[in-house]
Design a protein around this nucleic acid. Structure first.
Lengths: 349, 349
DNA sequence: TTGTAAGCGTTATCAT
DNA sequence: ATGATAACGCTTACAA
């Protein structure tokens, strides 16, 4: 006892049940159980259980070219936005007997491409991309590989592939209207990278909403961050405030950028929310713990992940199923980082 | 063009290079390249590249019973403590041509056990456990499966398996001494679960350090949280303060528990750090952003992960290599959640 | 140094 | 309804 015993194969089960290996295979596969007598099925199941037989997914995958495995490409697992999305994905996949294989890309297209190749080589049955830029070469590669793909959180230009995203324009509008209601008119935007759909859409929503409240200017007060990172947010905030000194509120394109705005405001001696209001986007975990607690636009992380997984499984089952774009509605969460502007709103004219 | 072409196999390369498949296999494997003429190796490499040959790891794995894959079991990927550890693991594995497969266990032993079986079935070459309890049945299972294991962050009783952890006792002592230096004497502990090594060791370090500063009592002022979650921390803090009303400082066994202490303090109308000082453990991402910024014990997350991966790879290469227990030193990070006690220290006598 | 052939564990196809 | 057989793509004794 104790030493690692030899693996129990389908042959062992066949012998024990007094049938042929192919019969065991049929009996154990829910899909083809119908092709087998009830009595035989029972006998096989009993033998399998008795021997502790565990089918070998590697061998099966070699034969069937499928792996019950889904690759998930994430830009940065250390960004708290993504774990809840992953949880949603895992929950939905688990229900269907699939396993997620998560790959970090570090926001590096080369690493993303490498990861995709590795996943394809391991016969992933499909891919969920949380890393998509608006014109992403990975999608072409997936098409070539015949690999079903679903986008999550970020979308691409031209809906040639299924995606589950937030209504980013609506989300940005939520933030602008909230600030307007508080009395702000001089509202600036720290935008996300234009090459990402979230950056582009939230910017678009911001511009439209600003115009809608009658506070639009030409050009609109926007500074774009190169990445979704705190430091980039601080730099963009600095640029924004330098160019538009009168600004009383900033709509940041995500929570990390908002944190960068916090830093820059503090550096300038501006108190938030007293001197300047700041909003984020995503409602990432711990956003309620920041100082001040962040007013932000909540997106349904978990649901997004789950929905993406379900969409992907549907496309795997039926490769010719139509591509779908699902847009989930965001929701404003008001916390401590927004307040009435210090001097009150300028009188309407 | 366009339609997914048939897979290019080793046979195709063999034909193109005018050699036998086995020669291609040798030529392409760095280990056995020596067995092949330089000229042939070059010819094969050229053909492989020209055809865009990608070796099939599934087929290779079926034959070799290895997968160049490492399973990583994590209690909760949404806990910001773990992403940096994973990054360290991935970096070290990637350097060696291995891929990490991450599995969330949700702190559920059943899910952990399922994940382990899945990983074993997929022929993981080894396992990194970040989920270990002090007496963990998973280890016995790994031994039975002949699966090399390394523990990270949490250890087990009795060093029968390699582990990379922080010196938790020393870490807790760091926190206690910091508070003592500020003038605190009535210091309580919100402990982590006793069944986890981190909970037990930090508690032990706390008790010893409290005695060392001459502030030990019998019993020591400790309340244990059932889990490492914010709510559990709040409940434990409530119990601790109810039993020991004079307490001016709390050493929490991790950052999430410290956050729970924040909540309970606020509920009781106690300002932190004015009325009560609170320390955490881990220095998880964003701990510096909390309100107040958290004074905490920093552990080298990334290095821990990387070291664990290296240890595991060494054990995979040489299964009889001795088990090692590596203890990394923590470091105190002083921020805004600790201050002198309100009334000042009692006069020394 | 290279070729031959067997085998990893499963499933799909064909025959019975 | 079940059995026989080949094949998935690769690696590795062994033979030449």
């Amino acid at each position: 006892m104790g030493m690692p015993r030899k693996r129990i194969t389908i042959e062992d089960v066949a012998r024990a049940a007094g049938v042929h290996a192919s019969t065991v295979s049929r009996a154990l596969n829910p899909q083809r159980q119908a092709l087998v007598t009830g009595a035989v099925a029972a006998r096989v199941a009993a033998a399998a259980r008795r021997l502790g037989y565990r089918p070998d997914p590697v061998a099966a995958g070699l034969r069937t070219r499928r792996s019950s495995t889904i690759g998930v490409l994430v830009p940065d697992i250390a960004n708290p936005l993504f774990p809840p999305i992953l949880r949603g994905i895992e929950a939905a996949l688990g229900d269907a007997g699939y396993t997620a294989i998560i790959a970090n890309t570090d926001n590096d297209p080369q690493r993303a491409s490498d990861a995709l190749e590795r996943l394809a080589a391991r016969r992933a049955d499909g891919i969920i991309l949380a890393t998509a830029s608006r014109r992403d070469s990975l999608l072409e590669r997936c098409r070539k590989l015949g690999l079903p793909v679903v986008l999550v959180n970020r979308s691409i230009d031209g809906g040639s592939v299924s995606a589950v995203v937030t209504d980013d324009e609506a989300g940005a509008a939520l933030a602008v209207r909230h600030l307007a209601l508080l009395g702000h008119r001089a509202i600036g935007h720290v935008a996300g990278p234009r090459r990402l759909s979230t950056g582009a859409q939230r910017r678009r929503g911001f511009v439209a909403a600003l115009r809608a409240i009658g506070a639009g200017t030409q050009p609109p007060p926007i500074a774009e961050a190169e990445t979704y990172e705190i430091e980039a947010g601080a730099r963009a905030a600095a640029a924004l405030l330098a160019t538009n000194p009168g600004i009383t509120a900033i709509v940041a394109a995500n929570d990390l950028l908002a944190l960068g705005c916090y830093d820059e405001a503090k550096r300038l001696g501006l108190a938030c929310p007293r001197d300047i209001s700041i909003t984020g986007f995503n409602d990432m975990p711990f956003a309620d713990r920041f100082d001040p607690p962040l007013t932000t636009v909540r997106i349904p992380h978990r649901a997004m992940g789950a929905e993406a997984a379900r969409l992907l499984l549907a496309e795997i089952e039926n490769p010719r199923s139509p591509k779908r774009a699902i847009e989930l509605q965001p929701e404003l969460v008001v916390r401590g980082s927004t307040a009435r502007p210090r001097a009150g709103p300028p009188p309407a004219r």
